[in-house]
Nucleic acid binder design. Structure first.
Lengths: 355, 355
DNA sequence: TTGACAATTACAACCGATTGCATATTTTTT
DNA sequence: AAAAAATATGCAATCGGTTGTAATTGTCAA
């Protein structure tokens, strides 16, 4: 366990001042090329590694990005994190990740921790029941950028990376209508969250544009869990006029709802056509395979970190307050009815083994 | 954007020395109770937050744990991380997470980054093709604890958190044999990794104990991906004597292999019975539902961080070099043959909706 | 030869908390 | 009442880089 090498050691070894060594290591232009070379080689020879804490202390920045995520262990969210990690790593930023577990309380606690850890910037996807944004105030007032992803804040002051949920939902609903569905149920999450509110909006618009009636009874709001899916199916089975289409805001919920319906003897897609959301791997495994909205998680993570770093580098384009990524309806067996293949050239993915 | 409050501000305000303030905030016994109270309330009144960097610089520790994970976006790994995050957070440690993406090169780079970030300890699950442990040497020689989880190192000097893969595999294989399988194929990953080597061992032992022959042809080694599963199925379809049992080291691979076989007209479990590994949610979704080894990811994450922190707190029990968690065979339709329900009281999970 | 100017390098203060040692104050003991 | 011990507080150095400003050296034109 040998002692750590500091810039002072390098300086002494080369008979220079720590100042010059520090500047050289930061590639400061005011240091002679030859000197730099000498310092570099001496540094690596001695096994020097910079002390981030000394540096951070002096520079008042941490090269650390905080990430608050509702729940880590879902396919979508872990893809997002994977994307974030990649970009952050490449740009020499560290990530501190914490989960709100879908509750405001934990989200507030997380925000506080992040603030105390003095993150340079914060990336947040809001918990189900977060109402106000007060816990992000400390960041704002200290000019620490906060960027939302997926579950964003409505307040115009906050930047966010999203997909066009209205459009995606509109597309999914229209697809169901094209397949002959006349009575579609939409299962979605807490409407305080933009993602769910927007999807409901898209659902309504699609009905409207196709002269189909909308009523509150067409919407089931739950927490989109497995159990909620099963429960929703039971609810549907009890309905007076059974729906012939189902658009669910989340694949897990959709799958378990669908399976429950199948077990109750309902045939999918003929009696009820189903579309999910997220395009989780699970979609290609369930029988019948589940149509879904492909949702670029990995990319969303990359973009979120990239714009945060962009902002931190002072290249901020403060006018850009929303970045919208593409999303795409993937049609599979769960919503494709025989003799209805008028899909206007949309992507098809009939066979389960198709990617 | 108001200036940050430091202990000097608090000291000045109360006409005390920074020393006392620092001690009070660390609950040092040599500070008077009343003084402490005054300092606490002044601190919160002024909105003081400790500067980790100054503190870390002085104390030469970071309260940060590094985590190297092969791939973040799998159900198992994200559960592990979720568990780690929970415990770390509770103990006021930060997590720095990075992915090796299953390659040594990235793993080495990650280790270097972690080392330069001066993590207090390191948690590692090895990449597929990691051969030697040289990149962890710097940690060892600086007395920074490295604990492995799941994919551990064989070297006795490294501690690790694991399940008993031999036992789990033995159980799964025995179960297949009990269901009447006489010719079982084992699909697994790179044998350099303990998890796969051990599972092969358990597989062999089970055959041996049941007087079934083992040959190299009974083992398929691949990267356990979706595609590998499809490919393995094609391989199986070409075999002269078609197997009647299949034990796969990973659910994703098992599921796609199974689906390919089903599509080729093979009936599961009657013609081929299948058992996977990990008990991913996907197991309960696929038709027929997939038997699998339940693998406590979340718990593994918790335990790993807990023992690392334990070690860092000096409570180290250096003799404990392996912590083994329970794992359990979950029997579902993919391996349960009719009229063979002699399962000696094992857990059953026949219906897809069963948790 | 000298002053202007650029190119390098160094000095020294600073970032904010921690801690060994010394000092001051109070309490206990004899 | 003096000495010893216990309690509470402060001084000042330290952790390892960073940076504004000053000093030194060299170059070139006048």
């Amino acid at each position: 366990m040998d002692k750590d090498i500091t810039i002072y050691d390098i300086a002494k070894e080369l008979d220079l001042s720590p100042t010059t060594v520090s500047r050289a290591l930061n590639d400061h232009p005011a240091v002679n090329k030859n000197t730099k070379q000498k310092i570099y080689s001496m540094a690596s020879q001695l096994g020097y590694r910079s002390n981030m804490f000394a540096s951070n202390l002096r520079r008042q920045r941490t090269n650390t990005i905080g990430v608050i995520v509702p729940k880590l262990n879902s396919n979508f969210m872990s893809s997002v994190i994977a994307g974030m990690e990649k970009v952050a790593n490449e740009a020499d930023y560290n990530l501190i990740i914490s989960q709100s577990l879908e509750t405001v309380e934990k989200e507030i606690a997380n925000a506080k921790t992040m603030f105390n850890s003095r993150v340079d910037g914060l990336l947040v996807s809001l918990a189900f029941d977060t109402e106000n944004m007060d816990h992000f105030e400390p960041f704002i007032s200290k000019d620490i950028p906060v960027i939302f992803y997926d579950r964003v804040s409505d307040h115009k002051q906050f930047a966010g990376v999203v997909i066009d949920n209205v459009q995606a939902s509109y597309e999914a609903t229209t697809h169901l209508i094209e397949q002959g569905c006349q009575n579609i149920i939409h299962i979605t999450g807490n409407l305080r969250r933009n993602v769910y509110a927007d999807r409901l909006k898209g659902f309504k618009y699609a009905l409207l544009d196709n002269d189909l009636p909308f009523s509150d009874a067409s919407v089931i709001i739950n927490n989109l869990s497995e159990d909620a899916g099963v429960e929703a199916a039971q609810q549907i089975l009890q309905m007076d006029s059974r729906p012939d289409g189902l658009f669910v805001s989340n694949d897990t919920c959709a799958v378990h709802c669908m399976k429950t319906l199948t077990h109750a003897g309902i045939s999918i897609p003929d009696e009820i056509a189903v579309v999910g959301f997220n395009n989780d791997p699970i979609c290609r495994v369930v029988e019948p395979s589940l149509s879904s909205i492909d949702y670029p998680g990995y990319e969303m993570g990359e973009v979120a970190v990239r714009s945060l770093i962009h902002y931190l580098s002072g290249l901020a384009d403060t006018s850009v307050t929303r970045i919208t990524l593409r999303s795409e309806l993937i049609i599979r067996s769960s919503s494709l009815r025989k003799g209805k293949e008028n899909n206007k050239g949309k992507a098809l993915a009939l066979l389960p083994e198709t990617k």
